[in-house]
Design a protein around this nucleic acid. Sequence first.
RNA 1: GGCGCAUUCGUCUAGAGGCCUAGGACACCUCCCUCUCAAGGAGGAGAUCAGGGGUUCGAAUCCCCUAUGCGCUACCA
Length: 483
Amino acid sequence: MTQEVRTRIAPSPTGDPHVGTAYMSLFDKAYAHHRGGKFILRIEDTDQERYNPTSVGEIIKALDWLGLTPDEGPGIGGDYGPYVQSERLHLYQEHAQRLIEIGAAYRCFCTRERLDRMRAEQAARKEPPHYDRTCLRLSPDEVEGNLAEGMPFTVRLQTPDEGTTGFNDMVRGEITFENRVLDDPILLKSDGFPVYHLAVVVDDHYMKISHVVRGEEWISSTPIHVLLYKAFGWETPAFAHMPLMRNQDRSKISKRKNNTSMKWYREQGFLPEAMINFLALMGWSMPDGEEIFGYEAVEREFSFNRVTTSGPVFDLVKLTSINGKYIRMLSDDELYNRLLPYLPENIDQERVRQVAPVIKDRLTRLGEFMELTAYLFGPPPPYEASLLVPRKGTPAAALAALARLHTLLEELPQPWTHEQWEAAMRALAADLGMKAGDLFMVLRVAVTGSTVSPPLFESLEILGKEETLRRVAEAEARLGEAG
RNA sequence: GGCGCAUUCGUCUAGAGGCCUAGGACACCUCCCUCUCAAGGAGGAGAUCAGGGGUUCGAAUCCCCUAUGCGCUACCA
């Protein structure tokens, strides 16, 4: 029997849930599940200085929202916990100790100050920065002495001086590094916390991670990880380095140049399924070229062979376009339900139900609903009387048109539905010597306060006869004052 | 600076030696539909496949060099 496929996402809880975390999770989960395996969440909170306690919950919430809920993780359960690194400290310490014992790692008593000075000198000499191995040359007695004095120390991996270390990347093929360019990395910090390199290898091993799927930024440190697996005598997992999402200037996506918080996308009213579709299109494509597809399709079709190697620019315009498509695919009832979290507390929900189908084609984000339809829930925004006057018309003519419109609307029979009045209004326009479109525009401005609006007739129906007439009367007054 | 990864329309991509006078999507333009705006439909413009050398009967696809971009180069991840 082959080994179970297990992938993981390992975010550090340092702030808002990052869109890059969602991006990686999508492929992690899709691949694992495609192979009948498991997707694991592990929290990498070994950097105490950047730790943010609310972040873990936010990350889980964001993944849930997208439908990327992990199979194992903190608060979720699983047989390989704990899934938070700060609860596994003893493990890293034991393993660092083991590396020292077998001669693969050594204690380093150098202070930050000395290291800073050393690097400054190297830079001055135009040498690449690297640890000078002062502490590797310490005699056993010196080490014992330092320990006895209680000097703080870090643990460094001793990297080989010769040969190469490589690995086969599932998206990029063979990648090899000269061992001599490898610096002796710190594995355990002086506060007893591990550095990423140690923690990730120990955890991935004990959590039985079979495929390490992560960002391209990790390629350079993979040889260290490979060396660690070797030192421990463990089997190395498969690696897949995904392309990095980019800002418009092609630098690694950042919150200065993009909205990187998943919370933001949710608040704006991007649909999770649109988000998934968009993310899946970055660096991956469906075999049949389909561009609108859901998570199930990604899971069914996913393969690292179809992952692109160059970093895609994150394009909010395209996301918005996809989001609009998904909104239009919603039934009226679904749209109504999805809209609810984006509405003010005391809104008239029945009216929302009426408005939803009318606005559907015009919505690009759920959060846009109120700004597009405010005039249907309250008075129209203030507008200049001149807006009521058609381009080639006069204020007097507009006023006359409004008066006729007023009477017409008043006299129209119930039920108050537009099929009845459209013909009558067109006739009125002809009678007034106006283009129907111009007459409709006068009414539109009177009712919506704008020359750009959702459909006029449906708007009148929703507002009802009384409110419509009120607005027409007000427009007449406004024009009267102005003229 | 060193090392690594990358390079097809503005952007996301298709493309695994002949099907490519390079296809699709977003954005853009035109037209149709139309009460405005959208949505929808039909068209259009847009890439000498980074550049240069090879290999081959034939290269966007394979190899080499150069350029450019990005990443790493922390007791961050």
